[in-house]
Amino acid sequence: MANRTTRIDPAMIDRLADMAYLDRNPAAVRKRVEGMEHLLERLFVIPGINRPVGLDVILDLIPVVGGTVGAALGAWMAWEARNVGMSKFQMTRMMGNVGLDFLLGLIPFVGAVPDFFFRSNTRNLRIIRKHLDKHHPSTVVIEQ
C-alpha cells in the first residue's frame, strides 16, 4: 500500500476565510435578509387586488407546523441581524414581531388573514435596513 499524504493548499484556506467573512459582511447580510423577506412576504401578487403574498401566508394555512416553520424563518432574519451588530432593543423588537406573527398564525386557517396584513418580516427588514443604512452606508442599494 502506498503512503498517501494530504497537502493543504494555502489558497484554499484563504478562500474558506473569505467565505467566513462573507457571513458577517453587512452587504451580504442585507442581500440575504432582503431575499428571505421577498420569499416570505412578496413571492407573488394576487390578481385583482394587486396584493403581494408570500410563503408566510401559505404556511399559515397548515395548522401549527406551518406557523412554526414561518416563525423559524422569521427568527433566522433576526439572527442575521445579530451578525451586523444590532442592539438588543432592536433584536427584541424583531423577535416580538416574529412572536406576534407566530401567535396569530396558531389560529387554524383564520390565522392566515391577520398575517396577510401584519407583515412581521417586512417590518423586521425595515428595522435591519435602517440599521445598515446608518452604520454601514456602503451597503445601500439604490433601486430604480
Rank of each mutant, 00 (worst) to 15 (best):
Ala72Asp: 02
Ile46Cys: 04
Gly99Trp: 05
Leu125Ala: 04
Gln90Trp: 01
Gly111Arg: 08
Leu103Gln: 02
Val98Ala: 07
Val110Lys: 03
Met91Trp: 03
Pro26Ser: 05
Arg129Thr: 05
Asn121Tyr: 03
Lys31Ser: 14
Ile13Lys: 08
Ile13Ser: 07
Leu106Tyr: 00
Met91Thr: 12
Gly96Cys: 11
His135Gln: 11
Val45Phe: 10
Pro52Val: 03
Ala81Tyr: 05
Leu43Thr: 02
Leu59Phe: 14
Arg15Cys: 01
Gly74Gln: 09
Val65Pro: 00
Arg42Gln: 13
Val29Tyr: 12
Val69Ile: 15
Ala72Thr: 13
Met36Cys: 00
His38Ala: 12
Gly74Pro: 02
Gly111Val: 05
Trp76Glu: 14
Val33Gln: 04
Gly85Thr: 07
Val45Leu: 12
Val140His: 11
Met12Phe: 12
Val84Arg: 08
Gly67Ala: 11
Gly67Phe: 05
Ser87Gln: 06
Ile107Asn: 02
Arg24Tyr: 13
Ala112Asp: 04
Pro52Glu: 02
Gly74Phe: 02
Met12Glu: 13
Lys88Asn: 11
Ile46Thr: 08
Arg4Pro: 01
Ser120Gly: 10
Leu40Val: 03
Ile127Phe: 11
Leu55Phe: 11
Arg15Thr: 12
Gly67Gln: 08
Leu132Glu: 03
Val140Tyr: 04
Thr6His: 10
Ala28Met: 14
Asp115Pro: 00
Arg15His: 12
